[in-house]
Lab assay of single mutants.
Amino acid sequence: SEIVVAMYDFQATEAHDLRLERGQEYIILEKNDLHWWRARDKYGSEGYIPSNYVTGKK
């Protein structure tokens, strides 16, 4: 599975969105859409994140 790191904070506005915290790692579950990826955080929460807010883990 692909691990990404959040470059920016993202506040979830929709129920299906996942909040991003800058510097935290997330697991990508689905990339069915170019701009919104389904991800899981370290607490096990899942939701959609803006793909341009994250970068591949170095």
Results as ranks from 00 to 15, higher is better:
42 K>S: 08
58 K>W: 13
32 N>Y: 11
27 I>M: 11
53 Y>L: 12
58 K>C: 14
18 L>P: 01
37 W>I: 03
12 A>P: 15
58 K>Y: 14
19 R>W: 07
3 I>G: 03
12 A>M: 06
23 G>K: 03
33 D>H: 10
38 R>T: 06
11 Q>I: 14
7 M>L: 15
51 S>N: 06
25 E>Q: 10
58 K>Q: 13
39 A>V: 12
56 G>H: 15
13 T>S: 11
48 Y>L: 12
33 D>V: 05
55 T>M: 11
19 R>M: 10
39 A>T: 02
21 E>D: 08
48 Y>F: 13
29 L>M: 06
2 E>R: 09
24 Q>E: 14
58 K>P: 13
19 R>T: 15
43 Y>A: 09
39 A>E: 02
30 E>V: 07
16 H>E: 12
48 Y>C: 14
12 A>N: 08
14 E>Q: 13
21 E>F: 10
26 Y>N: 00
44 G>M: 06
4 V>Y: 11
41 D>C: 04
12 A>L: 04
31 K>E: 03
54 V>T: 05
52 N>K: 12
57 K>L: 13
14 E>G: 15
39 A>F: 04
9 D>H: 06
1 S>Y: 15
30 E>G: 06
21 E>S: 08
17 D>H: 15
40 R>V: 07
12 A>S: 12
5 V>Y: 10
43 Y>F: 11
44 G>S: 04
17 D>I: 15
48 Y>G: 02
15 A>I: 12
4 V>P: 00
27 I>Q: 10
48 Y>T: 07
16 H>M: 10
18 L>C: 06
26 Y>R: 00
46 E>Q: 06
8 Y>T: 06
53 Y>N: 04
52 N>Y: 09
45 S>Q: 15
28 I>Y: 03
52 N>M: 11
56 G>T: 15
45 S>I: 13
18 L>T: 01
8 Y>W: 12
3 I>T: 09
10 F>L: 08
4 V>I: 04
36 W>I: 07
22 R>T: 09
25 E>Y: 11
23 G>Y: 06
20 L>I: 05
3 I>F: 08
31 K>L: 04
5 V>P: 01
52 N>C: 15
56 G>W: 13
3 I>H: 07
43 Y>V: 05
57 K>I: 14
16 H>D: 12
48 Y>P: 00
45 S>K: 15
51 S>F: 06
41 D>S: 04
55 T>G: 06
24 Q>Y: 07
39 A>P: 00
49 I>V: 09
31 K>W: 06
18 L>W: 03
4 V>N: 02
55 T>D: 07
26 Y>D: 00
57 K>R: 11
19 R>P: 14
33 D>T: 10
32 N>I: 13
28 I>N: 00
49 I>K: 01
22 R>V: 12
50 P>T: 03
4 V>L: 05
6 A>S: 05
37 W>Y: 06
34 L>K: 14
43 Y>K: 07
23 G>P: 00
28 I>W: 02
13 T>N: 11
56 G>C: 13
8 Y>Q: 09
17 D>W: 15
3 I>M: 08
24 Q>N: 08
30 E>F: 07
27 I>N: 04
8 Y>H: 09
49 I>W: 02
21 E>L: 08
10 F>G: 01
46 E>D: 05
44 G>H: 03
4 V>K: 03
18 L>S: 00
18 L>Y: 01
56 G>E: 15
26 Y>H: 01
25 E>V: 09
34 L>Q: 13
26 Y>W: 01
30 E>N: 10
51 S>D: 02
14 E>D: 14
55 T>C: 14
51 S>Q: 06
14 E>S: 15
46 E>T: 08
36 W>T: 07
42 K>H: 07
25 E>A: 08
7 M>C: 15
47 G>H: 02
4 V>M: 09
1 S>W: 15
46 E>W: 04
10 F>I: 05
55 T>H: 09
54 V>K: 01
10 F>C: 08
15 A>Q: 11
29 L>S: 02
5 V>Q: 05
35 H>E: 09
46 E>A: 04
14 E>H: 15
55 T>Y: 11
4 V>G: 03
34 L>S: 13
51 S>T: 07
54 V>I: 07
50 P>G: 03
